[in-house]
Computed example of a mutant assay.
Amino acid sequence: MQWVDQFLNFLAKPGARLVHVFIIVLCVLAFDFFQRKILHKLLKHVEDKTKNFWDDALLHSARRPISLVLWMAGLSIVNQLIYRADDPEMAEIIGATSHVGIVIAITWFVAEFIGFSERKFITQQQKKLPGDESRVDSVTIEALCKLLRLSIIITSGIVILDTLGFSISGVLAFGGIGGIAVGFAAKDLLSNFFGGLMVYLDRPFAVGDWVRSNDRDIEGTIEYIGWRQTRIRTFSKRPIYVPNSVFSTIVVENPSRMSHRRIYETLGIRYDDIGLMDAIVDSVVDMLNNHPDIDTTQTMIVNFNAFSSSSIDFFVYTFTKTTDWVKYHEVKQNILLKIANIVTKHGAEFAFPTSTLHVYNETEPAVAPELAGLFDPKQNSEQKP
């Protein structure tokens, strides 16, 4: 094979550097093409054959970082063949660059793996019933994944600085001194960060919950919980951006976690129907006990309550089984209409504001004006013509 020997002799010449680079680039492109094809087929096979998402996450996260690793390996080979002997300074720069690229590729892979696993795990947990004890809250999963990504990024940053020749002890010492200065300068930012951490750990609310606070006139649905702020969508569809530090100083009510909804109504009938009050109250109690949407295990009170200015009042205090806002109002409407039918059935009527005017009639004859001393009859007769 004379032509092979000639080609190898040509490659051994110092002037064949461009050919070396071309061959290396061509090999990297070929390896990258084949690894993408192989990983794509493996990913389809794994998705169809296994129910575990961890192997899916591993293959899905490795595709693009492997390409970066191949290019960094090609750069390292070029460095060894071309610059190692002729230009040591350039060889050192290219070597450090390839090492930094490898670190970035590993960080990229781990971050992709965490992100893919997070999405799959949240989807898996959302399929479980709300009362399932094995269900993990999506906010907790997001918080843990954010902490993991932050830890990976900080670690890779330290490794990159060490690769570039910086002293790690000096960087850490500077970070300690600089952290104090940054802490004073970014006090509000850090308070929001730790406020977000407390929200993630205490979990007073989650994405999708309806929350309200009378302290700051906040009410709406949680859309997003970040490290610095939380986005709440009001019922008028306007977004509110609340710094996380605020939640450590206010009282937050979470109606989404209520177990029941309460019906508490006061109704009044006429004073003329006071004799029917006992029968009406008993009928309302029977109706509530037999109503399919009322939870009879909870507190139920129906009692004559007060003598009002225009009515005698009784109140209804009970709890519905549903917590859905629309369904609750349907149940409440049905109960109020049934109470109205009960009042009508017993021959009573609901009272409305009225006023009664009592007119006093004297039985004795009226006193004559002259007897009352209002005028003199003689003087009045003298004035007549």
Rank of each mutant, 00 (worst) to 15 (best):
H260Q: 03
R36W: 00
V207E: 11
E265V: 12
T296N: 12
A368T: 04
L288A: 12
V302H: 04
M258E: 06
T97F: 11
E223R: 15
H20M: 15
D188A: 15
S151M: 09
I222F: 07
N244R: 05
V159G: 01
Y360G: 06
A143P: 06
V211W: 09
I66P: 02
A62H: 04
N289Y: 04
V246E: 14
L267A: 09
I24H: 09
L148W: 10
A340Q: 14
I232K: 09
E362D: 09
I122W: 00
L43A: 06
V182E: 06
G347L: 08
K345S: 13
I153T: 13
L8P: 00
V4D: 08
G115V: 02
S138C: 01
N52P: 00
L288M: 11
E89D: 07
P365R: 10
K128M: 14
V100I: 15
I77R: 01
D324H: 04
S308M: 15
L337P: 01
P65L: 03
G347Y: 14
K41R: 09
R262S: 11
V25G: 05
R36A: 11
T50S: 11
F194D: 05
Q229E: 15
H329A: 03
I222Y: 09
Q80P: 01
M287G: 03
Q383W: 01
R261C: 08
L357V: 10
N9Q: 12
H291E: 14
I141T: 02
P243Y: 10
I106Q: 00
N9K: 14
I274N: 04
L144K: 05
H358V: 14
A306F: 11
Q333M: 08
V28G: 01
V359I: 13
G226T: 06
F352S: 08
F205D: 02
F314C: 07
T50P: 00
I294P: 12
A372H: 04
I160F: 07
D188R: 13
I250K: 06
N244D: 02
L147T: 02
F7V: 05
G178L: 03
A30Q: 09
M300T: 15
E364R: 14
G175A: 12
R149E: 02
N334H: 11
G208P: 10
L11E: 12
E89Y: 15
N341F: 10
N79W: 13
Q379G: 07
K187G: 04
F116P: 00
T50M: 10
A96L: 05
F184P: 00
A12Q: 13
D202R: 13
V103M: 11
K321R: 15
D324P: 00
H260A: 07
A186I: 05
E219W: 00
H346A: 07
I180R: 00
V19N: 01
D282V: 08
R64N: 12
N79A: 11
G176V: 11
V103E: 13
